[in-house]
Design a binder for these strands. Structure first.
Lengths: 144, 144
DNA sequence: ATTACATGTAATCGATTTGATTACAAGTTG
DNA sequence: CAACTTGTAATCAAATCGATTACATGTAAT
């Protein structure tokens, strides 16, 4: 099991739009850097747009950021691209036997812990600004 | 995306073995409470056994805990049933374009954050003892 | 208005994983 | 030997992922 790479692709897209801000970031251009299909990129761009992270317009080439990168967190992207639903990171087995003391209580006993674990993971994503990611990239390129 | 219910089933199995400690916890008995197929239960039992959490013997009905429940954490079960590999909770998109400054650095820029997020989640699981789960169940049954 | 190119989106495909199930080898007990 | 267990492989339908094709719709320039 792994969380879909839509999240890392989404982050890639946003970082590239920023770094290419003086150019035109079309789906084809982005696809070339991500190394993926332009249609898939457009699908993810649609999600980022719906979440208010980028601006794109039908027929007009290129996407722009709708917010400062310092106002976008990894959690924003994670929520935007729908990789994990609220409180559904962990699956609970369904229909445990209600006639067994364990079966009829196990879900309620486990669920709060699963929920807390998911929230702890999401909290880390919330504390990472996309600005950090771009800075890391520019550092590695000795541009900063 | 969701983490396999093998984890919640594993927890269920361990809790039930404890609560049924004076009885015989065969795969069929456990399957009846979990409401799953005995062969699947045996598969998970095999993983728990391999991880040193339970004792089972071919031909002999019933599983016993190999440790005190206060010495078993949710993380132990999580590792035992192989639901998520180390550092692989999040997928990174493969083969980003090495000729693009973003493409050739994005994986290294993202990976530490993904890793930290996964570890934070696992840390929560580590802090939950199966003893807590059993206590919750018994509380709800007014047995304690 | 026609051409060229963009985004938006639906449909399809192979690969992988999950959970369910059957089947059977091998061990144990009476 | 008979009846039961665990261990394990094989199979199956369903779900999901990422890749791809196809095309409707929108924009802009000639």
């Amino acid at each position: 099991m792994s969380i879909s790479s839509r999240l890392s692709v989404g982050i890639h897209i946003l970082a590239l739009i920023e770094i290419n801000k003086d150019g035109v970031s079309s789906s084809q251009f982005l696809a070339g850097s991500v190394n993926a299909n332009p249609a898939m990129i457009r699908k993810i761009m649609g999600m980022l747009k719906k979440a208010g992270l980028i601006e794109v317009h039908p027929g007009i080439a290129g996407a722009k950021l709708a917010k400062e990168l310092s106002d976008i967190t990894m959690l924003d992207v994670y929520k935007a691209v729908n990789v994990v639903q609220d409180n559904e990171l962990f699956s609970l087995h369904e229909n445990p036997n209600p006639e067994c003391p364990v079966g009829r209580n196990i879900q309620n006993a486990i669920e709060p812990f699963f929920s807390a674990a998911q929230l702890a993971m999401e909290k880390v994503l919330e504390n990472v600004k996309l600005e950090n990611v771009v800075r890391d990239i520019l550092n590695k390129e000795n541009i900063i």
